[in-house]
Design a protein around this nucleic acid. Sequence first.
RNA 1: GGGCGAUUAGCUCAGGGUGAGAGCACUUCCUUGACACGGAAGGGGUCAGAGGUUCAAAUCCUCUAUCGCCCACCA
Length: 884
Amino acid sequence: MSELPSAYDPNEVEGPIFASWIDGGHFGSRIVPGVRPYSVVIPPPNVTGSLHMGHALNNTIQDVVVRRQRMLGRPTRWVVGTDHAGIATQNKVEQKLAAEGKSRHDLGRDAFIEACWEWRHEHGATIIGQLKAMGCSCDYSDEWFTMDPTYQAAVRKVFVAWFDKGLIYRGKRIINWCPRCTTALSDIEVEHEDRAGHLWHLRYPLEVPVGGVDHLVVATTRPETMLGDTCIAVHPDDERYRALVGSMVVLPLVGRRIPVVADAHVDPSFGSGAVKVTPAHDPNDFEISERHGCEKINIMNADATISVEGGAYAGLDRYEARERVVADLDALGLLVAVDDHAHSVGQCYRCQTVVEPWLSDQWFVDMRPLAEPAIEAVRDGRVTFHPKRWENVYFLWMENIRDWCISRQLWWGHRIPVFYCDACGWSGASEHDIERCPKCTSKAIRQDEDVLDTWFSSQLWPFATLGWPESDERLDYFYPTNMLSTARDILFLWVARMIMSGMYFNDGKVPFDDVIIHPTVFNAEGRRMSKSLGTGIDPLELMEHYGADGMRFGLMLQVTGNQDIRFSEEKLISSRNFSNKIWNASRFVFMNLDGYVPGPPEPMTVADRWILSRLAGLAARVGEGLDTYEFGEVARSLYDFFWNEFCDWYIELAKGRLQAGGEQRASVQRILVFVLDQALRLLHPMMPFVTEGIWRRLPLLEADRAASLMVAAWPDTAGLARFTDPAAERSVARLIEVVGGIRAVRSRYRIPPKQGLEAVFRTAGDAEQTWVTTEFGQMSALAGVSSFSAGTDLDKPPHSATVIASGLEIYLPLEGIVDFAAEALRLGKEREGLSADAAKFERKLSNEGFLAKASPEIIEKDRAKLAEISEQLKLVEAQLAELA
RNA sequence: GGGCGAUUAGCUCAGGGUGAGAGCACUUCCUUGACACGGAAGGGGUCAGAGGUUCAAAUCCUCUAUCGCCCACCA
């Protein structure tokens, strides 16, 4: 029946099984009218990316949920695809060009975009192939890319809709500028990090002294920005400066006359209480300048060199300029002091370059009107986060949401669909390209140069991948999706925005019901996994060593409500071993199926009733755990049941009955096949390959068969509940304890496995006596007991070991098995040695001189040693007593 | 400044009011016809600290310490 090798080899098994799934068409999504579907969209990985541990975890979670729903009989749709990843992809392609000594400007916009598409075609399939290696059951026949033509249409539709509603506007504002990527970033694309820096105190002379005061001192962390100062602000209630408000300061190095203004934003207790205001390079200063009508002078170029507005410093890099400005002020005697000062520095989330707050013309989305219904949807439970505590994080951000800067000064991406007529000055947004001005019919029409933030298109993923804005039956059937699983770092960047846009464009229907925020995978040292730091672990390598199932299950074991995972490869080792255990337990069943006739399970023994009852409990726990996304608990339940109950006890018990033949054999075969079948179904979502590889060979009743385990029926929890049998569970728990106690005696006396033992049970009454003779009889072989007797009046035979288990007293006569003379002699000598040692330490520890003068560590060490010796002594004495 | 998470065996972590658990590591024994990626038996923990609630606290509450993460217009 079976020529299965004795070790499970994932590399041998996985490929053909995956191919068979594809060939069987089991991944495809079908619309089955009247049947409730289950749909999930994958968080689209960057097209430049390759699989990392975060993907491995996230996609295992999704696959577990999707496979289980598929087995429940629901039409499933797991959307797969990649994100065009504007900045990341543009950077990659620019790097490639740089290696050839070229820049994107050498190519020009069209050729550069062409090069990006080439990159996408060359590398875009990498990560999809890796998902396949993991066994992910996505619908690969319907792969999406966030720059597909239909997707582009969706993006334009959204832009124009919001533009027409006035929700998208253009404005000159302070934004975060990455001088290396030379683009604007949104607030949440900036990573803040505290850095050691300085606070420079600068003296600014007054044009005309006021009441004997001829200068002000201001403090700054970025002295080079003083070139763009256009006023000085003090708090209106600050007595020290009240008289100076309205007077003029002459800006050093520049010579500009700038006013002193009073503004409540200023904290009088910080620094000198007077603030230099640089409206074009600081958001707060911008606000102050707006309130007081001060000039806004941009002193920086796009590459963070000083602009012509910086006069003598023009052309210098921002850090060179800082040094020069400080040195020049110092030379003029205007540098009052320099303090050490740690402050937060913003960095580009794509290239880690320090960003500049920079005044420029950008496109924004007015988020407040969009946020309100999205807050309400979470508040009233239409969208539920798991774990729930993330909802507070969501609320906090959403309730304080700020306008979203969506324009990027890049070439790769969705070009902003706004057109300008140079002839008549008309401008407007359009879903389709415009050749002629709709107002003056001039052909002097040009499109906005900027592209949209990648996340602007990503936010449409749940419905754009269903064919929106075209009316599409898929949209009606599969939207809203059921679950979204993702890492916490894109909660704002992506999840919140999907809820907002999903509701806006789908009649208020939320894009998904449940949001799983899974733990972040850190390395063993607790540090972020990063390819560039060399602290990453490659999932593909893990799969080579442990199999896809080993990696998947190992990850699932580590998913708890915790927010971090310190990745533990040991869990993968146990999971790989678990695959092997499943494989071999199945081999055992196959090897014992000669003459098997399929049939429903009919329990004959307490062990049968026990394993079926345990199976019923397992199915209930697994179902419930998957419903509440408690993957770690589900994995542990599966592991414990299969290994510690089914393999360690049921299979061991089955061996004798398989040997016995006849009705016993037929019965146990059916239970074995039934339990294995059901267990494989429960295990399949987490370990799809090994379970599928075995399941197909199981000789099942016609009604239980399916083309593949992945489309076989999920165990019927309610139906299995009929096997629930607390009495059998209690009985077997007691048997396990009794057998364990007897085994412990065997182990203690080194009784060889083949040496049978006699067991004498002293029982408290008839019920117990019956239990021993009927139930223990079935298990006696597991304890190596060859004969046993039970009675209320049986005495302890001489030279017996005693086992006390579950209220039973069991004597094991060891006469003729253990050489008592020799054993007693050995133990006697051991006792003498131990006693002498103990006495020595006791003397030492009662010597007051020693206690007073020896170091505490030594005393502690000796005490511990004494305790250890006393313990050993007790054990030896107990053994001597047993032998007496 | 605000919020969240963590602190349990040598290591990595579950658990979450009434018997302190797993995997790995360690010790001893076992190549027995499923599996040495295995089996059996063991050793090992004041559950971060201090208070409180309770018949009962590792578990609930308060505070403290340490570590980590997120948010915030920290000139």
